[in-house]
Amino acid sequence: MQTKIAGTTMPVLEITLEAGERIIAEGGDVAWLTPGLEMETSTGFGSRGKGGFMSGLKRMVGGGQLFLTQYTASSSGGFVAFAAQLPGTIRELAIDSADEYMVQSGSYMVSTPDVEVSVGVQKKLGAGIFGGAGVVFQKLTGNGTAWVQLAGEIVEYELQAGQSLLIHPGHLALFDSTMELEFASIKGIKNKLFGDSMFLAHLHGPGHVWLQSMTPAKLAASIEPYLPDKSSSSSNDN
Score class of each variant (00 low, 15 high):
residue 123 K to D: 04
residue 105 S to M: 05
residue 187 K to D: 13
residue 150 L to Q: 01
residue 177 S to V: 05
residue 127 A to T: 12
residue 176 D to Y: 01
residue 127 A to V: 13
residue 147 W to R: 07
residue 198 M to G: 03
residue 120 G to V: 07
residue 164 S to Y: 01
residue 138 Q to W: 00
residue 165 L to C: 09
residue 179 M to F: 10
residue 143 N to K: 10
residue 167 I to V: 14
residue 98 A to K: 12
residue 112 T to P: 08
residue 168 H to F: 13
residue 194 F to S: 14
residue 104 Q to Y: 00
residue 142 G to R: 11
residue 184 A to V: 07
residue 126 G to F: 08
residue 165 L to Y: 06
residue 183 F to P: 11
residue 197 S to E: 13
residue 172 L to A: 05
residue 158 E to L: 07
residue 175 F to N: 14
residue 157 Y to E: 12
residue 100 E to V: 14
residue 135 V to Q: 03
residue 136 V to G: 00
residue 128 G to Q: 14
residue 194 F to V: 03
residue 158 E to D: 14
residue 162 G to V: 03
residue 191 N to A: 11
residue 168 H to K: 15
residue 138 Q to H: 03
residue 194 F to Y: 09
residue 102 M to C: 00
residue 189 I to Q: 09
residue 182 E to T: 15
residue 190 K to E: 10
residue 192 K to I: 06
residue 191 N to E: 06
residue 117 V to H: 00
residue 195 G to R: 05
residue 136 V to L: 01
residue 99 D to T: 13
residue 113 P to F: 04
residue 154 I to F: 10
residue 171 H to P: 07
residue 136 V to W: 00
residue 162 G to T: 06
residue 144 G to D: 02
residue 148 V to Q: 03
residue 198 M to A: 13
residue 117 V to D: 02
residue 193 L to I: 03
residue 135 V to C: 07
residue 102 M to V: 02
residue 181 L to Y: 10
residue 195 G to H: 01
residue 115 V to I: 12
residue 136 V to A: 01
residue 127 A to R: 14
residue 130 F to G: 00
residue 197 S to K: 14
residue 185 S to D: 06
residue 108 Y to G: 04
residue 100 E to M: 13
residue 109 M to Q: 07
residue 121 V to A: 08
residue 146 A to P: 00
residue 126 G to Y: 08
residue 189 I to Y: 07
residue 180 E to A: 12
residue 194 F to T: 14
residue 127 A to Y: 09
residue 175 F to L: 15
residue 196 D to M: 10
residue 98 A to R: 12
residue 143 N to G: 03
residue 107 S to R: 00
residue 137 F to E: 04
